[in-house]
Amino acid sequence: MGLYEPPSAVQNHSRHGVTKMHGEYKMPGGKLIVADLDVRNGNLTGVRISGDFFLEPDSALTMIDVALEGLPAAAGSKHHAAVIAAALGRHVRMFGVSPEAIAVAVQRALETRP
């Protein structure tokens, strides 16, 4: 149908020496949160958060990805969550997802590193 790229785009190891990492977290009482990311020079890069949660407005998803981009991978979940919360401010409404839960998904992705 040519609607989208085939899943061959999914790689465990890219040609550029960065490792593609994937983590999933089912938030208790919430929804599934997925983190796909790379680490380059110790910093998060190519961060893509996804899942079956709800965000209003929908543009908040990009704000989350942008907020995480470039953060030190070793900064820890608390710091990652605080940066997400600060980026979203008070006007974004979340249902089935939270900054803390996203940070857990990121942490799980980081722990998949071979």
């Binding site: 796909d36 079956d52 929908d58």
Partner: peptide
Amino acid sequence: IGRFQSLRN
């Protein structure tokens, strides 16, 4: 798929 889901996932 939902608005926030990854297509290939």
